[in-house]
């Protein structure tokens, strides 16, 4: 139990680093780290398939997208960069204190919660659930991927045209 809680603490720290660090590249790295840690958390809770997805898609693919966006958009002039960094620091520094306070406050709450429990553990295999009960969601996935493909076509072609 102590290990699991520690894992969650590290996960929050990684997310905190992602939101506080100075450059976009480090921020992306922090997010990828948080994603990877989340997939470890999911794996140890028994969500193996979802953990694999989280690791490959979120920690992998999304980081690639974010890194390419960060590198395609160069930073502004150094003075401007420093000024915006300072104003951001002024707004972000209370965050760790807020998180610690919230964490301490919530750790004292132990009100009973009425959870409906499905026994015995589990309700079948995730593949069965996904393919035989949630086909509509699978269809939705295919559809949104199609929409995403159209989006890449529209948005990135438009870039190329504007460059001419």
């Amino acid at each position: 139990m102590i290990w699991f809680t520690l894992l969650l603490v590290v996960l929050v720290l990684a997310a905190l680093w992602a939101s506080m660090t100075t450059t976009l590249l480090r921020s992306t790295l922090g997010l990828a780290l948080a994603s990877a840690l989340l997939s470890v958390v999911m794996f140890s809770m028994g969500a193996t398939l979802a953990a694999v997805m989280e690791l490959s898609v979120c920690a992998g693919l999304i980081s690639v997208v974010l890194v390419s966006v960060a590198s395609l958009t160069r930073p502004r002039s150094i003075q401007e960069e420093l000024a915006s960094r300072r104003s951001r620091l002024r707004r972000i520094w209370p965050l760790p204190l807020v998180l610690i306070a919230a964490g301490v406050a919530l750790s004292f709450v132990h009100a009973p919660v009425d959870i409906v429990l499905h026994l015995p553990k589990g309700d079948g295999d995730v593949r069965t659930v996904l393919w035989s009960l949630r086909q509509l969601d699978l269809f939705g996935q295919i559809l949104i991927l199609l929409a995403g493909a159209l989006g890449v076509l529209v948005l990135f072609r438009k870039e190329a045209k504007d460059d001419d």
Binding site: R134, L136, D137, G140, Q141, L143, I144, A147, G148, L150, G151, V154, L155
Partner: peptide, 18 residues
């Protein structure tokens, strides 16, 4: 189903963003 509702709302939204 509430989750499928969410999925289709999201599909519509993504198409509209584009």
């Amino acid at each position: 189903d509430l989750f499928s509702l969410y999925v289709f709302v999201e599909v519509t939204a993504v198409a509209t963003f584009i």
